[in-house]
């Protein structure tokens, strides 16, 4: 076991991990950060994308020990509680998700893309997120969402939008699961 210190979504953790533990397994199994998901075992699908020290990484390709001393942001910590990041809001507005399994990774990758390129063309978005696979949407509405978010972020000063601005009815829908 190796001890690591890592800050995840604004909280500092000190944990013992097996050296072989992947960051995604640490997040899901030790921290309960199950918003970040696993879609493959070859780093192709990008479903597990998080930010490590401000850059998008596929957390199945990073060992937990490599995050020692680092700062991790997951989909759960992307925006303050009760608000949405413009990219989250745009995915909702433009119907950029269906089953939603790829969505956390897709959003985290898109945020990173927009940091590099605040005004991407259709082709630049498509190439920018080609490390993330989606099986439901055919990507067209994801491209629209990223471009819409880009526009909003270029115009916005503080980035985050209030959840109240978004037409959502948040309620646990499945009885028998809390």
């Amino acid at each position: 076991m190796t001890q690591i210190n890592v800050r995840v979504d604004g909280v500092t953790y000190t944990d013992d991990v097996e050296p072989r533990t992947l960051l995604v397994h640490y997040l899901r199994e030790q921290l309960g950060k199950v918003g970040t998901v696993i879609g493959c075992d070859t780093s192709n699908c990008g479903a597990c994308t998080v930010h490590l020290d401000g850059s998008a990484v596929k957390s199945c390709t990073v060992l937990a020990v490599q995050a020692d001393g680092g700062e991790v942001t997951t989909i759960e910590g992307l925006a303050p509680q009760g608000s949405l990041h413009p990219v989250q809001k745009a995915f909702h507005e433009m119907h950029g998700l269906q089953c939603g399994y790829c969505t956390p990774g897709m959003i985290m990758a898109s945020v990173d893309l927009l940091k590099e390129n605040p005004d991407p063309s259709d082709t630049e978005v498509r190439e920018g997120i080609e490390g993330n696979l989606c099986r439901c949407t055919g990507y067209q509405n994801i491209v629209r969402a990223v471009q819409q978010a880009a526009g909003e972020m270029r115009g916005a000063t503080n980035g985050h939008v209030s959840a109240a601005d978004v037409d959502i009815a948040a309620a646990p829908h499945v009885v028998g699961q809390s």
Binding site: R28, G32, K33, V34, G35, T36, V37, I38, T74, I75, E76, A79, L84, Q88, F91, H92, E93, H95, L97, G100, Y101, T103, P104, I107, V166, D167, I168, A169, A170, A171, P172, H173, V174, Q177
Partner: peptide
């Protein structure tokens, strides 16, 4: 063109995938 009710939990990682369950 109603925006989906489902999205709220899916875009914020507040999901109930089977593998999440402990």
């Amino acid at each position: 063109a109603r925006r989906r009710k489902e999205d709220a939990r899916l875009i914020t990682g507040r999901t109930t995938w089977t593998d999440n369950m402990v």
